[in-house]
Design a protein around this nucleic acid. Structure first.
Length: 677
RNA sequence: GCCAGAGUGGUGGAAUGGUAUACACGAGGGACUUAAAAUCCCUUGCCUUCACGGGCUUACGGGUUCGAGUCCCGUCUCUGGUACCA
């Protein structure tokens, strides 16, 4: 044992983690007693168990853990199955948590979860142990090697760190001459002159990260001028929790986590009173980019031995009276995303070159395709200055690079007519296409990824704002879908909301651009359209369901356009409703409507009046056994019994009833009717 | 593995247990125009039928219910979080 320990000590933890093949260990000669069934368990020393795991002896489960398995095999220890779902135990360990326990005493027949609970209860019952949940904070390095950030109140005395005395807090950032590291590589705080604790001890030179301060600042907002405490008890009681915390994915795991941690710490100190800092959390989704990818490879057409000639291939193009070998050493071959490339198979395009996938900047593509001029733009951008082939389904485009004018020239499209082997090289024969031969589309492969400069899929909002306006962009972001979902950006769709805004504008300015809003009283149909919006938008805002609000506005504007509405009684409330969604447009219209002073954001919110939505008649879908067969109109005031009678007396049963006896009629007033036969 | 969330047309998506596919994009057809832009109209889940119509469809399989995208059980897949966890 001593020998083994000495040998193991010589190896670092890193060595032992990396070395998974060598199994070593030694039996101590001792046994532990299993507290549940009192069976003796042999105790071994092994070096694959790392000190960081657990605090005492570590149980081995050779059938469930591969390291334990190898260990047991090596020393010929028993490998009992513990679950009826384990498979191939003669080959390897099976860590499944499925199935029911076997060979396991009191937990036999139980699932993993049941067994856990049973064992904890048993051990607690016998006074042998206690159940405990361990919480863990995410590992994070708290110190930052930069200037801006709260200095960490730690000083060093004889190489040991001490906390600054409470009376000496707060520690204030010292002035420095430049916000850069020192020449010796210390953080910027190392530049501060005479910055020492009590004039003699070095301070910690890193500062706190951004979320140190931002993990509690919301509390300070409750009582910003209080010089005695970060927030008074009264202010804390008055404001309570933050109503809504909205942040992205990074915030959720970083900032939010620390905010909660710090809040609970403050609660333990008795300084705040709620269990959580935030009442509601919304994790807004990220808008993703759509990248465009193509396959790219290179081939050589000349150049000595087969081995030196990359990928062992040649390209020839064949004209009517001649054979043309492209003369450049290297040709770049781009392959359309829809062309299959089984690498290495002789006689296919693929055998020309092994390919990699590469991003094409999205501005060189259009609906996942590239045309000839976009191909040229792309090649100018890559600056490879080589001849190039763009292979699509029925052939390939040939481009020549001219070093004279540094330009790319589209020579021809070649229909692929043949592939064969020639001098041990794969040869692709192309026929110069006739005028009317149409090349297949050169496709790019779209893929949804994070927007990133390196993926060339970034959509710049400035460009969209220039083209469609800030309101359209804002509205479209809302319209894309639920706030919390990740979704790909698709610029095409923005035209829909832009059209909607134009239509909205035209309700106010129908003909020649002049405001033409009338003071006529509104019709019932117009009032209904308006009040449906008031009701729906109010409900949607409560649910943060902005996409459905935008739809509701679209429906209303389509209806009002059809009705030819230009009435103030409808449009003025409508523009107030729209103002949080399209603020610029709304402010503009508000002013035009005669509210020269004051913002629309101060206007009274329109009041919902149910009575405008009430209809005299309701059209009921009438279903037979749940399947809708007909529509029938009834007065809105009709009772369920009246409707049932009317349906049974009508021709509904003779038309759809298939001669069967009626078992039941379900009438949901205002909704639908279901006849059960 | 565990925890959480999701799966509906070509696409983004809608739907208090009550007419699934609203709204929008895209696509197709048409009007206006010398032309384009802009605008407007029609069609557009799938299968079947000349048509009228009929059948099918919310990842898959069951269940509850007069009625299920929605509730319950199981399966699969995807996404995120987490763990070299014995």
């Amino acid at each position: 044992m001593d020998e083994y320990i000495a040998a193991t000590k010589r190896r670092s933890e890193r060595d032992r983690m990396a070395d998974v093949k060598t199994v070593s260990g030694v039996f101590t000669g001792a046994y532990g007693l299993n507290p549940v069934n009192n069976e003796p368990v042999p105790i071994w020393l092994a070096d694959y168990v790392l000190a960081g795991y657990g605090t005492g002896a570590v149980m081995a489960v050779p059938s469930g853990d591969q390291r334990d398995y190898l260990f047991a095999k090596h020393f010929d220890l028993p490998i009992p199955a513990i679950s009826d779902a384990q498979k191939d135990l003669d080959q390897q360990a099976d860590p499944t948590k499925e199935g029911r326990y076997i060979n396991s005493g009191i937990v036999n027949g139980l699932s993993y979860k049941e067994a856990t609970a049973t064992l904890i209860a048993y051990l607690e019952d016998k006074g042998l142990g206690k159940g405990k949940v361990n919480f863990r904070l995410r590992d994070a390095i708290f110190g930052r090697q930069r200037y801006w950030g709260e200095p960490i109140p730690i000083y060093y005395k004889d190489g040991t760190a001490y906390g600054v005395a409470e009376a000496d807090l707060p520690l204030v950032l010292p002035e420095i001459d430049e916000y850069k590291p020192t020449e010796t590589g210390e953080p910027p705080l190392g530049r501060a002159k005479d910055w020492k604790y009590k004039g003699q001890y070095e301070f910690e030179l890193s500062t706190m990260p951004g979320w140190a301060g931002s993990s509690w600042y919301y509390l300070r907002y409750m009582d910003p001028h209080n010089a005695d405490r970060f927030v008074s008890e009264e202010a804390e009681q008055y404001w309570g929790q933050v109503d809504l915390y909205m942040g992205g994915a990074e915030h959720a795991t970083g900032h939010l986590l620390y905010s909660r941690f710090w809040y609970m710490f403050l609660k333990d100190l008795g300084l705040v009173t709620h269990s959580e800092p935030f009442q509601k959390l919304i994790n807004q989704g990220m808008i993703l980019g759509v990248s465009e990818k193509i396959k790219r490879g290179g081939i050589t057409t000349s150049g000595g031995t087969a081995a030196a000639s990359a990928n062992n291939a040649h390209v020839f193009t064949k004209g009517e009276y001649y054979r043309h070998v492209m003369s450049n050493d290297l040709i770049i071959v781009y392959t359309s995303a829809d062309v299959q490339v089984p690498i290495g198979e002789v006689g296919t395009i693929a055998s020309l070159a092994s390919t990699i996938e590469t991003h094409v900047p999205i501005q060189f593509t259009d609906n996942n395709t590239m045309n000839v001029s976009q191909m040229i733009d792309y090649m100018k951008w890559t600056k490879e200055e080589r001849h190039a082939l763009f292979v699509c389904e029925n052939g390939f485009h040939q481009f020549a690079f001219s070093s004279e004018d540094q330009g790319y020239h589209h020579l021809n499209f070649y229909t692929v007519t043949d592939h064969h082997n020639e001098h041990n090289r794969t040869v692709m024969l192309g026929e110069r296409s006739s005028e009317e031969a149409s090349p297949a589309l050169f496709k790019t492969r779209p893929e949804v990824e994070k927007m990133s400069k390196s993926k060339y899929n970034v959509v710049n909002p400035d460009v969209l704002i220039d083209k469609f306006g800030a309101d359209a962009l804002r509205l479209y972001e809302m319209f894309l879908g639920p706030l919390e979902q990740f979704k790909p950006w698709n610029t095409n769709g923005i035209s829909g909301v832009a059209t909607f805004l134009k239509k909205f504008w035209r309700l106010f300015h129908p003909e020649d651009g002049a405001l033409a809003v009338t003071d006529e009283p509104a019709s019932p149909a117009e009032l209904k359209a308006l009040h449906r919006v008031i009701q729906k938008v109010a409900q949607d805002i409560e649910k943060f369901s902005f996409n459905t609000s935008v739809s509701t506005f679209m429906i209303a504007v389509n209806e009002l356009t059809a009705l030819g509405t230009h009435k103030r009684a409808i449009l003025e409330p409508l523009v107030i409703l729209l103002s949080p969604f399209a603020p610029h447009l709304a402010e503009e219209l508000w002013e035009e409507l005669g509210h020269a002073s004051g913002s629309i954001s101060q206007a009274a919110y329109p009041e919902f009046r149910e009575e405008y939505l009430v209809e005299a008649n309701v059209t009921y879908p009438v279903a037979l056994n749940g399947k809708v067969r007909d529509q029938r109109q009834f007065a809105a005031t009709a009772t369920a019994a009246e409707i049932e009678t009317a349906i049974l007396e009508s021709d509904f049963l003779s038309r759809f009833g298939e001669g069967k006896a009626v078992k039941k009629v379900v009438v949901v007033p205002g909704r639908m009717v279901n006849v059960v036969v």
